[in-house]
């Protein structure tokens, strides 16, 4: 019998090594569905999933929507622009209103860290965190892990280098927690202004020098650099940023042979990654997208029996 012990998926932090293995195994089994002529199975028939997106997101939202559709769930999409949020309704009021529609699962993306926790504590439905502020993006880390495991056959003992704006990245946090938990050696690298305090305590080695991070890496993960960071005095210019932290073919030579390049998207070609690298055969950026659907199907499937469980607090 296989299940996630908690009602919600709020963070990688709450997952055990076994939980992560279970999601990945289940996702692997589900990949076959997307290869069929009829890409639909009835596992979530009669279940209602609400996609509650307070932040614009095309990729994550489409990925979740596709996953839900392939599992035959009924879907309700609710986005900030069309919602009453602009009319001053609080998140809790919104959530309670939605809860009255008796959904089984609520998928939430929100600009505030912890918003999914608030929802999870107040709602009977299972809550899936689709990205909350600078906190976590657990399904992204799970799909990254699936991608790496498919390519490398394992996670343990690999060297993963995460490069870029670590401070503002929920992906960096979730990936660090996950890969560290699974026994990989995680390095994060970026300008000191974009590395948050005590990040090493999450389980990563921290460096400001890209060569050190990439050397001998099996996986190089590039993060998007928001253009605003320049105005906020985190970096002098995107040009200098690329010179110091951009991924070029030349820099890739420091990585292990057969190393792969990942990016959670959307990419800034020429800012954090050279076009030739993004399109190279060692780039698995598109596999990540495909694995995203299978991973989200797995998460939805595994949580779909859990709504109504006691709201879970995150373990520390």
């Amino acid at each position: 019998m296989a299940s996630l012990s908690q009602k919600d998926l709020l963070s990688i932090e709450q997952l055990s090594v076994d939980d992560i293995g279970l999601v990945l195994d289940t996702a692997e089994a589900l990949r076959e569905v997307s290869a069929r002529a009829v890409k639909k199975v009835p596992a979530l028939r009669g279940k209602t999933v609400i996609n509650l997106f307070f932040e614009p997101s095309t990729r994550t939202r489409s990925s979740f929507e596709l996953a839900e559709k392939r599992l035959s769930a009924d879907i309700l999409n609710f986005s900030a622009s069309s919602s009453s949020v602009t009319k001053g309704e609080t998140l809790l009021d919104t959530a309670r209103n939605l809860e009255a529609m008796a959904p089984d699962i609520i998928v939430i993306r929100h600009a505030s860290a912890g918003a999914p926790h608030l929802l999870g504590t107040e709602c009977r439905s299972s809550v899936v965190n689709a990205g909350d502020g600078m906190h976590e993006h657990p399904t992204q880390a799970l799909l990254d892990a699936l991608t790496v495991r498919s390519m490398k056959g394992r996670l343990e003992g690999l060297k993963l280098a995460i490069i870029g704006d670590i401070s503002h990245s929920r992906v960096a946090r979730s990936d660090t927690l996950l890969f560290h938990k699974m026994g990989a050696e995680v390095w994060v690298c970026g300008p000191p202004t974009l590395i948050p305090a005590d990040f090493h305590l999450l389980g990563a080695r921290v460096t400001g020098f890209m060569e050190e991070a990439i050397e001998g890496a099996d996986v190089v993960m590039m993060l998007r650099l928001q253009n605003e960071r320049q105005n906020e005095a985190f970096i002098p210019s995107t040009r200098e940023y690329f010179n110091l932290y951009g991924l070029s073919r030349e820099r890739m030579r420091g990585a292990r042979k057969n190393a792969i390049v990942m990016h959670p998207g959307p990419m800034n070609r020429g800012v954090e990654i050279e076009s030739e690298v993004a399109d190279a055969d060692y780039s698995v950026i598109l596999d990540q997208v495909a694995n995203g659907v299978a991973t989200r199907m797995a998460v939805l499937y595994l949580l779909s029996g859990n709504s109504g469980l006691k709201p879970g607090r995150e373990s520390r």
Binding site: A2, S3, A29, G305, N306
Partner: peptide, 8 residues
Amino acid sequence: GNRPMLRE
């Protein structure tokens, strides 16, 4: 409640 283990 519990999800049965899924296999390919």
